[in-house]
Computed example of a mutant assay.
Amino acid sequence: MPPIKVAVLGECVADAFATGSASQGELTLRVLPGGSPANTAVALSRLGTPARFLGRISHDSFGAMFRAHLEDSGVDLSRCVTADEPSTLAVATLDESGQAVYSFHAEGAADWAWSTAELTSERLGHVSCLHTGSLALVRAPGAERVEELLGQAAARATVSIDPNVRAGLVDPAVYRERMPAWCALADIIKLSDDDLECINPGESLDRVCDTWHAAGARLVVVTRGSRGATVSVDGERATVSAPATEVVDTVGAGDSFTAGLLHRLHTSGLLGGRLDILGLDQARDAAAFAVRVAALTCSVAGANPPWARDLDG
């Protein structure tokens, strides 16, 4: 196996999609592997960037599904913990535009139970980049351990964070309170425009980006759905357009974008430090590639990101 370049830390989630008629007293759940960090690791590996997933994966039936999905995509699971706690379940409802709204069943789940002895620099290993985000950043008791590892990794690797706000499960005030600390730890902050509005309601993108740059983040990327994405490097900003896409659903699109962004930064030789030589043109190029990856994910059902061959041409 080639040297691991990106480690992704966080949760696996069983995404359950309801079919049938509730009015007739019966629903059928179609369960697919998901979870923002796991989706990102899968997408990275499929694009060709060697990826390691750091997670606590349950030994239940959902956990077996996660392992098979990650391994089939080439993700390194050698540093995962096999956990006694159950997997996290999310029941998704799709609106008319294919946007998913989730209800989470996450209490006492394996994903959040990291101990200090489990989550160490030794488990992380030598990587160019550590990416994390979503519920792993905010769910006790593991969230504190995650932040500690980010601080340790920052001395030798690029740190990337996607808050991926889950307002139905975690009060947005928690994200608002933690953002300065995350920006101090991270070189890359990536989030959606919906996340931005949840964390800093009513504030302009320019103002928020400048605040987060001042707190320490070198690169801020805001995805904007069909409008593409905005990149901000130390206050210089540019926007990239999204390709026209026939959307099946948007599940996993943001995670695929993150993977595309990190993959392009990796292949450009930019990961592995503080992004000191990153310029706006390079950030724009990485985001333009990332929106293509996200668009392909939107064109199929579920979090099923493309392989490198799907982007040829």
Rank of each mutant, 00 (worst) to 15 (best):
G216F: 12
A113E: 13
L29A: 07
E96H: 13
D206A: 15
G108N: 13
T120S: 09
G279P: 00
G228N: 14
A217W: 01
C129H: 05
L150D: 00
D76S: 03
G216E: 10
T239P: 00
N304L: 08
V13D: 12
A18I: 01
G108K: 08
D206K: 10
V91Y: 09
L149K: 08
A303E: 13
D15Y: 08
Q24H: 13
Q24E: 12
L119T: 04
T211H: 10
M1A: 14
A100E: 11
P37R: 11
A90V: 09
S192N: 04
G74A: 08
R67N: 01
L275G: 05
L296R: 14
R67W: 04
V6I: 15
V81N: 02
C80T: 15
D281H: 14
L150V: 10
N200F: 15
P3I: 06
H126Q: 11
T158W: 12
A157D: 12
S160P: 10
R207H: 14
V81K: 05
T19I: 06
R274L: 03
T158Q: 11
E144T: 11
T49E: 06
P306D: 13
S232I: 03
R176K: 12
A181M: 11
I4N: 05
F62V: 02
D111Q: 01
V138I: 13
R139W: 06
D193W: 02
L196I: 02
E122H: 09
A100W: 12
A229M: 11
L89C: 05
L185F: 06
I199D: 12
E118I: 07
E26P: 03
E246H: 10
T158F: 05
D15G: 00
G254C: 03
H69P: 07
A301K: 08
A140R: 15
L27F: 05
T211Q: 14
A286V: 06
W182Q: 04
S192L: 04
G225Y: 13
V146F: 08
D162M: 00
L205I: 15
L130G: 02
R284K: 15
E122L: 06
M1L: 11
L32A: 11
L9I: 07
E246T: 05
S61W: 12
F104W: 02
L191S: 01
R227P: 00
T132Q: 01
E246D: 13
R166W: 07
T82G: 05
G260Y: 14
S256Q: 03
T230V: 15
S268I: 10
A253D: 14
D249C: 02
T158A: 04
R52F: 01
G63N: 06
G272C: 02
E148T: 12
K5M: 03
R176F: 01
R30Q: 13
F104E: 10
V81C: 02
T245Y: 03
H126M: 09
T40N: 01
S226V: 13
S226H: 10
P306T: 12
S97K: 14
G269L: 14
V174F: 08
T258F: 01
P50N: 07
W212P: 09
V208K: 11
K5D: 07
C198L: 15
I189H: 09
R67C: 03
D310W: 05
S115W: 08
A167M: 02
S36P: 14
G108R: 11
V159D: 05
D76F: 01
L135N: 07
K5N: 03
V240P: 10
